[in-house]
Simulated scan of single mutants.
Amino acid sequence: MEKLVIGTRGSKLALWQANYIKSLIEEKHNISVELKIIKTTGDKILDTPLAKIGGKGLFVKEIEEELLNKNVDIAVHSMKDVPVELPNGLEVGVFPIREEPFDAFLSLKYNSLQELPEGAVVGTSSLRRKVQLIKKYPHLKIKDLRGNVDTRIRKLTEGQFDAIILAKAGLKRLGLLEHVKQTIDDSLMIPAVCQGTLGIEYREDDKKVQEIINFLNHEETVYRTKAERAFLKKLEGGCQVPLGCLAILDGNVLKVKGFLSDLKGEKFLYEEIEGDKSDAVKLGLQLAEKILSKGGKKIIEEIYAQGD
């Protein structure tokens, strides 16, 4: 194989991620790698919260069509944008080393969430972040914030928000840490499933490509991804359901923590579990089952009933 084509979105972050994988492949193999930029539905609709327009798959659907039509060989995704059900014939099975999974607090005037005064305006379009903020800091005012990373930071610097919350991984990758005042660890906010994780998607029957990219797989990231994705799959969580999950590997012990909430943050179910890393999928499923059995099933049914 002389040439490999990567399908990617055209956002700065997506291009950084695709170019990062391109450089690793070219360094390892004697192959030229090209990028093909594909505009997705999620890129075209910038003024509506994702939960209202169909959620995660909006950032990958068109790229997956190009993969299936053999116009590209692989796709590089942020795993938190990838639905748990993939189209027939495609697989996401290679996970490079994970970046920090936590959220970041950005502000011009304040140094931390704890410092924000009564009525301070915080920008985020994530239901997961909203419910966790409401629960811990009920005195804050939370407003929707959409757009790419640059747009969101611009809205902060223009004074539309007192603070905004973004994934730290993307900011690190783009060198945009200047307004980050606090890393919001999992004691304050559980991250999104697979936040900071990249996944490489390819055709299941394309063994040649799989041989080329296998070296990118990072063992610890694989275990953590399996547990978090199993949790998500069991809860059937799209963008309409506020939930989060984080798996941490300590030696051979995988610790998985997760939550599910109603839209107001009033019914908030948090659980954790640990076990051997080889049981990653089982641990993710068991954690989800614990939450479902304690009222999670009812919360999910109520949320989807409201959307009908």
Rank of each mutant, 00 (worst) to 15 (best):
H139L: 14
I153A: 03
I134C: 08
L156I: 06
L166S: 08
Q160G: 00
G159F: 06
R154K: 14
E158G: 00
Y137I: 14
D144Y: 03
T151L: 07
Y137D: 13
K155T: 01
D162V: 04
K135L: 00
Q132A: 05
A163W: 06
Q132D: 15
R146I: 07
L145T: 04
A163I: 05
E158I: 00
L133V: 08
Q132R: 12
N148P: 07
R152I: 10
D144V: 11
D144H: 07
V149F: 10
V131K: 03
V131E: 04
G159C: 09
K136S: 13
D162C: 06
K155H: 09
K141S: 13
Q160C: 01
R152N: 11
T151N: 09
I153G: 05
Q160V: 03
L156Q: 07
F161C: 04
H139T: 08
K136D: 05
L166M: 15
I165W: 15
D162Q: 09
I164D: 04
N148S: 13
R154E: 09
K141R: 11
L133T: 10
I164H: 02
R154M: 08
N148C: 09
I165K: 13
V149M: 04
L145M: 06
T151M: 08
I165M: 13
I153Y: 08
T157L: 14
L127M: 11
I153E: 12
G159N: 10
